[in-house]
């Protein structure tokens, strides 16, 4: 009996790997946000810390935040105030369980995979409401309410956009969905050609999913809950030091998790034409995810912030009916063909 037969050892290894990969990538994304933003505005961005390119900037900031005083306002509901960042990160870590880096490198390939991910991801709504309500601050309260309304409104397009993929794949398991996209769709000569779902008619679903994901992550152009020109920092106004950092980390880890899910559902996951998924799978999936993360950062410097009612209008008038139409068309084609 080898060591890898023990359930707990395997679980510990998986947790260790997932945490190391997630943190390494989250630091990369944080740094990319600083640098990409800077270059899009014709600035240099961080250049001092660590020497070349200012690569140590994110480490310096983490250390700085660790040394900041942990302030809890007198009017705050202290237990809830302390719990909110925990709930926020708890949701993110629960989601990464199902992301498959390769056919075997997956913490838990649940049968209800994507459905579970959407359910676990929506826990962050509660975290933001907790943060907004417990701060005992008017800006936080308004920000928290906006966040709650926004997150539940965009939860629907997000969920409904996924249904099209589930119909095509006939399974909710993330590995199953990835493998379904690797099946040859047609043959040229004797070479089978496979296409990711984004190119198999789910392009509308992909666009809806990415828009809704941006709103779920409260990123520009959907950052009304933390709009700095109106609400200081929204539900994060009263947070300082390490707790604030944890929310920030949750945002970047969330960007990665959402991008990875979108890559698996619509872009073929760990498969790429001509590359062996067992060996190159992790690099392919991470590459696809980082491209989507770059697009998210790019959007930030492209569009102005929407107004609160425009945001709700976009979700209810356009995205939800469009996602439902997408389901109807996909289902009809699946049954007829």
């Amino acid at each position: 009996m080898s060591l890898l037969d023990n359930v707990w050892v395997v679980l510990a290894v998986k947790l260790g790997l997932a945490v190391v990969i997630l943190f390494a990538l989250a630091l990369v994304v944080m740094f990319a946000e600083l640098k990409v933003s800077a270059h899009m505005q014709h600035r240099i961005g961080p250049y001092f810390a660590g020497g070349r390119w200012g690569w140590a900037q994110v480490f310096a900031e983490a250390l700085k935040f660790l040394q900041k005083e942990d302030l809890i306002p007198r009017d705050a509901d202290a237990p809830v105030f302390r719990l909110a960042p925990m709930v926020s990160l708890l949701g993110t870590f629960a989601v990464i369980v199902i992301i498959p880096l390769s056919p075997v490198l997956v913490a838990g390939d649940l049968d209800v995979g994507i459905f579970y991910a959407l359910a676990a991801g929506s826990v962050s709504t509660i975290a933001l409401l907790m943060a907004g309500w417990s701060s005992g601050n008017k800006y936080s309260l308004i920000g928290g309410l906006r966040a709650g309304a926004q997150l539940i409104a965009y939860e629907l397009p997000l969920v409904l956009a996924v249904v099209g993929v589930v119909i095509q794949a006939g399974t909710m398991s993330m590995v199953g969905i990835t493998e379904a996209q690797a099946q040859p769709l047609f043959h040229i000569g004797s070479v089978g050609i496979s296409l990711p779902y984004a190119l198999q008619g789910q392009i509308i679903g992909f666009v809806i999913f990415m828009i809704a994901a941006l709103a779920e992550l409260v990123r520009i152009p959907f950052d009304m809950p933390i709009a700095e020109s109106e609400l200081v920092m929204g539900y994060l106004t009263e947070y300082s030091g390490i707790r604030f950092t944890m929310f920030l980390l949750g945002e970047y880890a969330g960007m990665l998790a959402m991008s990875a899910i979108a890559s698996v559902l619509f872009l073929g996951g760990y498969h790429f034409w001509g590359l062996n998924a067992d060996w190159f799978g992790p690099f392919v999936l991470i590459g696809k995810s980082l491209i989507l993360v770059f697009v998210m950062i790019w959007f930030r410097w492209t569009w102005p912030r929407l107004r609160e009612d425009q945001l709700q209008s976009l979700a209810w008038r356009w995205l939800v009916p469009l996602a439902l139409a997408n389901i109807a068309v996909t289902a009809t084609l699946k049954v007829v063909l």
Partner: peptide, 12 residues
């Protein structure tokens, strides 16, 4: 697996 991963987020 799910409980351990979620618990780690809070523990962190």
């Amino acid at each position: 697996t799910v409980a351990v991963f979620a618990g780690f987020g809070a523990l962190l």
